[in-house]
Write a protein that binds this DNA or RNA. Structure first.
Length: 184
DNA sequence: CATACGATTGACT
DNA sequence: GTCAATCGTATGA
């Protein structure tokens, strides 16, 4: 079932572990690919590592919009990274989707990635390539039955997620804001 | 206008 | 383990 706007409007550090075991589903012209979210990172307001730290810009404006929208940006000029906007409108926070376990549309993902199954979506850029998330999906509303949506299939988040430091950043390096499903 | 640098990945030693 | 690819964005002249 769909999640509510209020569910996404909570703090990023609360939503991030709650997103574990939810389903990320992308429908590109009827070609459906989905996966179970197994790793996330929270980017908070007043967080030096966050794109939103210096206020709204053309790139990060979606982070300051309504919760439950998708924020997609170009990483290292090559890859795409997908985030879920959280918190109250204007607060500028989001949760980075770092890894999913492929569920539906495995053949499509293999075509897009041409990699072993274990490496189809085990990274933020890989997940976007496998599921078909593109830059033009920036600002898509995940609740409106859109091209990209996040669904709750009844699987609860892990009671004790693995918690660690965030990856690939140079500021606030030690903050324990990365969450992962154990043994996955 | 010039330039430095990524919320990464994949190939290679 | 190391390192190049590749370009939009931020920052400063």
């Amino acid at each position: 079932m769909d999640l509510s706007r209020d569910w996404f409007a909570r703090d990023a550090a609360t939503v991030a572990p709650d997103l574990l075991n939810k389903i990320l589903r992308v429908d590109v012209d009827g070609d459906v690919a989905s996966g179970r979210i197994i790793e996330t990172e929270a980017y908070l307001p007043d967080d030096p590592a966050s794109h939103a730290y210096n206020g709204p810009t053309a790139r990060n404006r979606v982070m300051f919009g309504p919760a439950g929208h998708l924020y997609v940006y170009l990483s290292y000029g090559i890859h795409r990274c997908a985030n879920v906007v959280t918190g109250g409108e204007g607060s500028g926070q989001a949760v980075l989707l770092r890894a999913v376990r492929p569920e539906q549309g495995l053949d499509t993902m293999r075509m897009r990635r041409e990699r072993p199954d274990a490496e189809l979506a085990n990274g933020p850029g890989k997940l976007c390539q496998a599921l078909g998330i593109e830059l033009h999906h920036d600002d898509v509303d995940l609740l409106a039955g859109s091209i990209v949506s996040i669904l709750d299939d009844g699987t609860p988040p892990p009671r004790e997620p693995l918690i660690g430091p965030r990856i690939g950043i140079s500021k606030a390096v030690e903050a324990p804001l990365r969450f992962r499903v154990p043994s996955d």
